[in-house]
Simulated assay, not measured.
Amino acid sequence: MTPDFIQKAIAICDDKIAKKGEGVGLSFYAFFKNRNDDPALLMQVAQWWIQTHELDHFEKAVKIREMLISDV
């Protein structure tokens, strides 16, 4: 994942947390628009989420944000 994408994903986590609280969950699809305009990036994120970290479909946004920050 590119540093720009990681920063975008962190911002999305921050937004979700601000709107719905610390207990809000999300999936990696939250980082993409409904239309898949970058399948290669989607696959990179899916690999990071599913294969690398073996995360459940929904995870706490706080947890994901911390993981992304440590990847920067």
Score class of each variant (00 low, 15 high):
residue 3 P to L: 12
residue 52 T to E: 11
residue 53 H to E: 05
residue 25 G to C: 14
residue 31 F to L: 04
residue 66 E to K: 15
residue 59 E to M: 12
residue 24 V to E: 13
residue 33 K to N: 14
residue 58 F to E: 15
residue 16 K to I: 14
residue 58 F to Q: 13
residue 5 F to P: 04
residue 14 D to T: 12
residue 39 P to H: 00
residue 13 C to D: 10
residue 61 A to F: 03
residue 7 Q to V: 05
residue 18 A to E: 13
residue 58 F to P: 04
residue 21 G to L: 01
residue 42 L to I: 08
residue 1 M to L: 13
residue 41 L to K: 07
residue 12 I to Q: 05
residue 66 E to A: 15
residue 44 Q to R: 09
residue 3 P to I: 10
residue 6 I to D: 00
residue 21 G to N: 04
residue 38 D to S: 10
residue 59 E to F: 02
residue 8 K to I: 06
residue 44 Q to E: 14
residue 30 A to K: 03
residue 48 W to C: 03
residue 22 E to K: 09
residue 42 L to C: 08
residue 52 T to G: 02
residue 3 P to R: 14
residue 12 I to R: 08
residue 70 S to H: 14
residue 62 V to A: 07
residue 39 P to R: 00
residue 46 A to Q: 07
residue 42 L to R: 07
residue 33 K to H: 13
residue 11 A to G: 11
residue 48 W to V: 02
residue 25 G to L: 05
residue 6 I to R: 06
residue 5 F to Y: 15
residue 70 S to R: 13
residue 1 M to H: 08
residue 17 I to A: 02
residue 71 D to R: 15
residue 6 I to H: 01
residue 66 E to L: 12
residue 61 A to V: 06
residue 36 N to T: 14
residue 7 Q to E: 11
residue 15 D to M: 05
residue 22 E to P: 05
residue 37 D to Q: 11
residue 46 A to R: 09
residue 17 I to Q: 01
residue 59 E to P: 04
residue 36 N to H: 10
residue 35 R to L: 11
residue 30 A to H: 07
residue 33 K to P: 06
residue 52 T to C: 05
residue 47 Q to M: 03
residue 35 R to E: 12
residue 70 S to Y: 10
residue 27 S to K: 04
residue 20 K to M: 08
residue 30 A to P: 02
residue 5 F to N: 09
residue 38 D to V: 03
residue 5 F to S: 03
residue 29 Y to H: 09
residue 24 V to Q: 14
residue 23 G to C: 00
residue 66 E to D: 15
residue 38 D to R: 05
residue 67 M to Y: 06
residue 15 D to H: 07
residue 66 E to H: 15
residue 28 F to Q: 06
residue 37 D to N: 12
residue 43 M to I: 07
residue 1 M to G: 11
residue 59 E to K: 12
residue 50 I to M: 09
residue 41 L to N: 02
residue 22 E to I: 08
residue 68 L to N: 01
residue 71 D to M: 15
residue 6 I to C: 03
residue 36 N to W: 07
residue 2 T to K: 08
residue 39 P to Y: 01
residue 8 K to Y: 15
residue 41 L to S: 01
residue 60 K to G: 04
residue 42 L to S: 07
residue 33 K to M: 13
residue 63 K to I: 03
residue 34 N to E: 07
residue 67 M to E: 04
residue 65 R to T: 00
residue 10 I to F: 04
residue 39 P to V: 01
residue 71 D to L: 15
residue 33 K to T: 14
residue 60 K to I: 05
residue 64 I to H: 04
residue 42 L to P: 02
residue 52 T to R: 10
residue 22 E to S: 09
residue 24 V to W: 08
residue 44 Q to I: 01
residue 71 D to Y: 11
residue 1 M to A: 11
residue 4 D to M: 10
residue 5 F to L: 06
residue 47 Q to S: 06
residue 22 E to W: 09
residue 45 V to W: 01
residue 63 K to G: 00
residue 5 F to C: 04
residue 35 R to C: 06
residue 71 D to I: 06
residue 72 V to M: 12
residue 36 N to Y: 08
residue 53 H to Y: 13
residue 29 Y to I: 02
residue 2 T to R: 11
residue 14 D to R: 13
residue 68 L to T: 00
residue 16 K to H: 15
residue 47 Q to C: 05
residue 63 K to T: 07
residue 55 L to E: 10
